[in-house]
Write a protein that binds this DNA or RNA. Structure first.
Lengths: 237, 237
DNA sequence: ACCTGAACACCGTTCAAGT
DNA sequence: ACCTGAACACCGTTCAAGT
C-alpha cells in the first residue's frame, strides 16, 4: 500500500455546502440546520465544515445570497429619464412610453424578487436582516438606486425608494398571511375577534390573499410614487 | 423548625418572566435568551420556567404579544363610510372630511405600530412570523379588517389591505436600512457597487433614511389606495 | 403548586492528530 | 490542504425529589 498522492480530491467545497444547506433549509426549515446534520448530509463529520466557512452563520448567509443572486436585475439596464435627452431611452416601439420606465422596471423587479423569495421562504429571515456584506444583496440595492437616479429621481428619493421597496417585498415574504395564521378555526373566537371569521381559511385560499395583497400593495405603491414623481417634475400645478 | 405553610408566595409568575425576557431581548438580542440565562436573571434555576410556560418559544411569543398590545387601535373606533348614512361619521368639525377617515386611521395606526416595533426591534422577527395564536396580534388584524369594511371597502379588499399594511410595517422593522447595512466603508467597493457610496453612512443618518422611507412609502401606499377607493365608488369615470 | 439538581440528547466551535 | 475524533462550554427539556 503506497502513500497516497497529495492532490487527492477534496470531499467538500463551498458550493457543495451551500447547496446542501439550501436543500436542508427548504426541506426542514432554518432551525433544522445544525453543523452536525448538515455535515452528515454531505457524508463528512461536523468540524469539516470549518475548513470552508468560518461559522455556521456564514453558511446561511451564503445560502441567502444565492437566493438574492437569482433575482433578475436586467430590467434596470435600460431605464432612462422621463423626458428630455432621449439617448437614455430604450430602443423600441414605446414612443412616449419611456415616461413610465422606472415604474415598469420596479414592477418587474418586485415580481422577480418576490418569486425568488417564495421559492425559498425559510431562508427569508436571514435575507431580511439586511444585505450586510452579501455581494448579491448589495448588487441588488445598487441596481435599484442606480436606475432610480438615472430615471430622474433625486438621490435622496432613490435611496428611500430602494428602502421602501425592500420593506414591502421582504415584508410580504416574512410577514406572509398564508404562513402567519394558523389553520385552526378554534383559534379565532368570534367573540374576541368579530371580523376574523375568514382568517382560518384553507392554506390555498391564504396563498391567494398573499398574492392579491402583494399585487394591490405594489400597484398602490407605484401609483403613489408616480404622483410624487410628477409633483417633482412639474412643481407648479 | 415547623413545616412551612402551603401558600408560600411563588417566586415566579408569567408576567415577571415575560418582563425579564423582554428586557433581555431588548438588551442583548434574541440569541442571548436561553432558559438558563433568563432563569438566572430571575434568581431561579432553568427548569422552573416550565412551571409557567410550556416552551421557551411560548415565552418569546408572549414577549412579542406584549409589544403588539401596545399598538394603539383607538383610531379605528370612529371610522365610517365615505358618504351616505352619516350616523357612522365621527362627531366633529370635519364636514365632508369624513371621506378620508379610513386613510387617516390607517396612517395613525401605521405610525403607532412602527413606533412600538422601533422600541423593541430585537423581538420583531418573532412578531413577523405571524399572529399565530397571539391575542394582541389577532386583535390588531381584527381591528383593521373591521374598520376597512366599515369604511366601505369590500371584504376581499379589506383583507388585502390588512395584509399589505402588515408587509410594509413589519418589513420596515425587519428589513430596516439602518440595521441592514454594515458601518464599514470598505464593505462597499465602488467598482462592484458604483451607486452605493452612501450605504456606509453613519448609524444616525441611516435611521433618518428609514424614517424618510417609511413616511414616503406610507404616503404612496395610502395615495394609491385612495385612487382604488375612488375607482370603486365611482365606477364610471 | 412550585422549585430544585441531575440527567438526556443535543448544540457551535476549537484543536491536536492524521494523511 | 483537508478531514477526523475528542473535548469544551453551552443548549432545551424531562423528571424524580423535595417542600
Amino acid at each position: 500500500m503506497w502513500r497516497m498522492a497529495r492532490p487527492r480530491k477534496p470531499l467538500l467545497s463551498r458550493d457543495r455546502i451551500v447547496e446542501a444547506a439550501g436543500a436542508l433549509v427548504d426541506a426542514e426549515g432554518l432551525e433544522a440546520v445544525s453543523t452536525r446534520r448538515l455535515a452528515a448530509a454531505l457524508g463528512v463529520s461536523g468540524p469539516s465544515l470549518y475548513n470552508h466557512f468560518r461559522t455556521k452563520d456564514a453558511i446561511l448567509e451564503a445560502v441567502a445570497d444565492a437566493v438574492s443572486a437569482r433575482v433578475d436585475l436586467s430590467m434596470f439596464d435600460a431605464v432612462g429619464v422621463a423626458d428630455g435627452d432621449g439617448d437614455e431611452a430604450p430602443r423600441g416601439d414605446r414612443g412616449g412610453g419611456a415616461r413610465r420606465d422606472w415604474r415598469e422596471a420596479l414592477h418587474a423587479w418586485a415580481h422577480s424578487y418576490r418569486d425568488a423569495l417564495a421559492d425559498h421562504p425559510n431562508i427569508v429571515p436571514v435575507l431580511a436582516r439586511g444585505p450586510g456584506r452579501r455581494p448579491a444583496g448589495l448588487r441588488l440595492a445598487d441596481a435599484v438606486f442606480g436606475a432610480m437616479t438615472e430615471a430622474g429621481w433625486p438621490p435622496a428619493h432613490a435611496t428611500r425608494i430602494g428602502a421602501l421597496m425592500r420593506y414591502f417585498i421582504l415584508g410580504s415574504a416574512v410577514a406572509s398571511f398564508a404562513r402567519g395564521f394558523v389553520d385552526d378555526e378554534a383559534a379565532y373566537d368570534p367573540v374576541d375577534y368579530p371580523h376574523l371569521g375568514q382568517a382560518h381559511l384553507l392554506a390555498e385560499r391564504r396563498r391567494e390573499v398573499d398574492k392579491g395583497a402583494f399585487e394591490t400593495g405594489l400597484k398602490a405603491l407605484l401609483d403613489g410614487l408616480s404622483l410624487q414623481y410628477e409633483a417633482l417634475r412639474e412643481p407648479r400645478a
